[in-house]
Design a binder for these strands. Structure first.
Lengths: 225, 225
DNA sequence: AAGCCACCGTGAGGATCCTGCTGGTCGAGG
DNA sequence: CCTCGACCAGCAGGATCCTCACGGTGGCTT
């Protein structure tokens, strides 16, 4: 999930960002309302987490402006104050939820999940399968033909990205954005290197190959020939 | 889709161009506004992606000039700055959209599709069919009578070009421009060679032939006799 | 605080694959 | 039967990709 975090206090921002990333989300950050507005209007976020007090453009106005731009991304406000009046103001501005600092991180996560309208744990996809390859997202474990495979964090993200798009060709650019969060060309063979490592663990020694390269385009994971 | 990219920073240009090409588009590049204007007035582009800051002729002026020349090709501006004023200026100059650097490439792609007035993702044509031959543009896969066919990048583009024009005679010149991006006659039999290879994979072994030669004119793909 | 270790990106070298060209052959049309 | 366009197998240059070893970094332990 892609989350926009707009928070000026560096410490809080770092804490929240880290927590969200550990939970497997991609986090875009902005330190003031103006930057936040711009990133938000770019769209593509599933949720935005916005501090109410921000330099340049306060959180309330920011979300109002985002809504005016026709963006419906759900918003959660963070605030030092916790009065009822504040809450009403926030909702009127187009916010969807409200959290008073200091807050329990777990609660933020829960609300984010709720807002993104994900069935809370019930129907959620927790196991990806491609052929005899299995990935359990909760246990963070991977196995093929019943045999456990140890993956590094980056390798895991890479494989997850591919498996979620089984059968589709995934371009290098998509991988750099989705797995590395690079928005530029590193001009090195990062992707190839990790694909190679992944192959060593996932394909080598098992009869059928699952990771296929599509020259000039990218990679696919696929069970059939 | 044919896209004109006008960007002076070589790295950014390379990254964007590569991403677009991976996504199956044809990219024409210019490094300054003057060249950009020249290429744009040539027409034939579906979208142009223009940096605002360019040598010789800035992006804004360039697009204004293109519009003055009666070319309506939709334009997307790229910019380092992110102010609202800039956005307005851009729209006034005849730009259709606006993207602040650094931007997520996926977003650029989405906006390009939006501007080209493509049905947004839902109704998009992703599968081409001619007789029992099928091409899935997202999966980049081709199959005939249910049997998977492996195609090289150039072969894929060639077949796609033909299938999009089912029943129409496609001339050698059209192919050279649309598939090879050649704007001159190579005076060799590139086209014939690739048609031949394509036949070997697509027609050979299946009863009915789909690729037909039209002597002195070009080629057609057609299911019936 | 120092040292160790896991993880990851870098860059080079080499393997592999793709593709355009050549030139001989085929076959349609006149 | 002749001519010209089309076909296609084989080849080589070059682009792309794979793999490996190395070193930096940051986290963790002692």
């Amino acid at each position: 999930m892609r989350i926009l975090l707009v928070e000026d206090d560096a410490e809080t921002a770092a804490f929240v960002a880290r927590g969200l990333e550990e939970a497997g989300h991609v986090v875009d950050r902005a330190a003031d309302g103006q930057d936040g507005l711009f990133l938000a209007t770019g769209g593509g976020h599933d949720v935005m987490v916005v501090d109410r007090m921000l330099p340049k453009l306060d959180g309330l106005s920011m979300v109002r402006a985002v809504r005016a731009a026709g963006i419906a991304t759900p918003a959660i406000f963070l605030t030092a104050r916790a009065g009822l009046g504040d809450r009403i103001e926030g909702l009127e501005a187009g916010g969807d939820d409200y959290l008073a600092k200091p807050f329990a991180f777990a609660e933020l996560l829960a609300r984010i999940n709720a807002l993104a309208r994900r069935p809370p744990l019930q129907q959620e996809i927790t196991v990806l399968r491609v052929g005899d390859l299995e990935m359990d997202l909760i246990r963070r474990s991977v196995s093929r033909a019943g045999k456990r495979i140890e993956l590094q964090p980056r390798e895991f993200r890479l494989l997850e990205f591919l498996m979620r798009r089984e059968g589709q060709v995934v371009t290098r650019t998509m991988l750099l954005e989705g797995v590395w969060d690079f928005h530029f060309d590193p001009k090195t063979s990062v992707v190839e290197t990790h694909i190679s490592r992944l192959r060593g663990k996932v394909d080598k020694g098992f009869g059928q190959e699952l990771l296929h390269t599509v020259r000039g385009a990218g990679y696919v994971i696929r069970a059939d020939g």
